[in-house]
Simulated assay, not measured.
Amino acid sequence: MEQLLQVGVIIQTHGVRGEVKVFPTTDDAARFKKLKHVMLDTGKETLPLEIESVKFFKQFVILKFKGFDNINDIERYKRCPLLIERENAVPLEEGEYFIADMIGMKVITDEGENFGILKDVMETGANDVYVIEHPSEGEVLVPAIKECILDVDIENRQMKIHVMNGLI
C-alpha cells in the first residue's frame, strides 16, 4: 500500500506573497483546513512543508506555506503534487478505498477468468468508473456499482467483477 497519498496539485502561484493555487485531488477539499503539514513531490525529492494559511476560491484551495514569502520562492513548484502520510488521511467508510491502493490491481470475473488490470478510476457525477486494461479488448470501462463490483481485496490486490451484458 502507498504510504503517501496525493491530496492536491499546485497549478500556479496566487499573488506575489508566496501563495499557491492548488487543485484538490481529494473528495473533501475542506480537509485542507485541518492539515498542518504536507509533502511536496518535486520529482527529485520530497520536501516537508508547513501550512501557514488556507483559503478557498471556486474549486481551488489557496495555500500559504511557512518560509515561502514571495512568488520567486514558490514559482518553481508549479505542477508538483502535494502528498500526505497515510496516517493523516481521512478515515474511510465501509466499501471506500484509496485510488492509489487500487491502481494496478488484478481484475477477475465471477467465473474466475482473468479480466485485466485496473489502470485508472474516473470520477463521474453518479458513480466512479474503473478503467481496466483487458488482455484482448483494450480499455474496458466498468461502472463502480454493486451489480458489477462484487469484491475489492486491497491486501491481495485483486478485484472480482460481474461482466454485465454489453460491457465488452
Score class of each variant (00 low, 15 high):
residue 114 N to Y: 04
residue 155 E to M: 12
residue 97 Y to N: 07
residue 58 K to D: 13
residue 151 D to I: 09
residue 39 M to Y: 14
residue 94 E to A: 13
residue 82 L to S: 04
residue 83 L to A: 03
residue 52 E to V: 08
residue 160 K to L: 06
residue 68 F to L: 15
residue 139 E to H: 11
residue 122 M to K: 14
residue 30 A to H: 03
residue 151 D to N: 13
residue 139 E to I: 14
residue 133 E to P: 05
residue 43 G to R: 02
residue 133 E to N: 13
residue 113 E to K: 15
residue 149 I to W: 03
residue 72 N to C: 05
residue 51 I to M: 05
residue 151 D to Q: 13
residue 112 G to W: 06
residue 91 P to L: 12
residue 85 E to T: 12
residue 57 F to G: 09
residue 160 K to H: 02
residue 30 A to F: 03
residue 42 T to Q: 04
residue 70 N to Y: 01
residue 157 R to M: 12
residue 76 R to G: 01
residue 126 A to E: 10
residue 159 M to W: 03
residue 79 R to K: 12
residue 120 D to Y: 07
residue 133 E to W: 06
residue 61 V to Q: 03
residue 152 V to F: 00
residue 103 I to K: 02
residue 47 L to M: 11
residue 52 E to I: 09
residue 150 L to D: 01
residue 39 M to L: 15
residue 151 D to P: 00
residue 76 R to W: 00
residue 112 G to S: 10
residue 127 N to Q: 05
residue 113 E to I: 09
residue 45 E to I: 05
residue 160 K to A: 05
residue 72 N to Y: 07
residue 152 V to D: 06
residue 151 D to M: 04
residue 102 M to Y: 00
residue 47 L to N: 08
residue 135 P to W: 10
residue 134 H to G: 12
residue 102 M to C: 08
residue 128 D to S: 10
residue 31 R to H: 04
residue 40 L to R: 08
residue 70 N to M: 05
residue 110 D to A: 02
residue 106 K to Y: 01
residue 108 I to L: 01
residue 78 K to E: 06
residue 147 E to L: 10
residue 139 E to F: 08
residue 66 K to L: 10
residue 31 R to V: 11
residue 138 G to I: 11
residue 141 L to H: 15
residue 46 T to V: 14
residue 37 H to T: 15
residue 145 I to E: 11
residue 61 V to Y: 00
residue 42 T to W: 00
residue 57 F to L: 15
residue 151 D to S: 09
residue 108 I to C: 00
residue 161 I to R: 01
residue 56 F to G: 07
residue 160 K to V: 14
residue 44 K to F: 00
residue 91 P to R: 15
residue 118 L to M: 07
residue 141 L to G: 07
residue 79 R to G: 00
residue 85 E to C: 01
residue 158 Q to G: 03
residue 162 H to N: 09
residue 142 V to D: 02
residue 146 K to Q: 14
residue 86 R to M: 07
residue 125 G to F: 05
residue 126 A to S: 06
residue 79 R to C: 00
residue 34 K to Q: 13
residue 113 E to C: 08
residue 51 I to Q: 02
residue 147 E to H: 06
residue 117 I to K: 04
residue 99 I to F: 02
residue 54 V to R: 04
residue 66 K to F: 02
residue 117 I to H: 02
residue 150 L to Q: 05
residue 156 N to P: 03
residue 48 P to Q: 09
residue 126 A to D: 06
residue 127 N to L: 03
residue 49 L to D: 05
residue 92 L to V: 10
residue 109 T to Y: 01
residue 134 H to D: 15
residue 118 L to V: 10
residue 117 I to P: 00
residue 72 N to M: 13
residue 156 N to V: 06
residue 147 E to I: 11
residue 152 V to I: 15
residue 95 G to Y: 01
residue 155 E to V: 15
residue 62 I to Q: 07
residue 81 P to Y: 02
residue 55 K to W: 08
residue 38 V to M: 11
residue 137 E to Y: 10
residue 58 K to P: 00
residue 46 T to F: 00
residue 86 R to Q: 09
residue 78 K to V: 09
residue 70 N to R: 12
residue 112 G to V: 11
residue 30 A to E: 13
residue 99 I to A: 06
residue 105 M to Q: 03
residue 77 Y to L: 08
residue 72 N to H: 11
residue 108 I to H: 00
residue 67 G to S: 08
residue 101 D to R: 08
residue 44 K to I: 02
residue 158 Q to A: 03
residue 72 N to G: 06
residue 121 V to Y: 00
residue 85 E to Q: 09
residue 134 H to K: 13
residue 93 E to K: 15
residue 133 E to G: 10
residue 55 K to Y: 07
residue 49 L to H: 08
residue 97 Y to D: 05
residue 135 P to L: 12
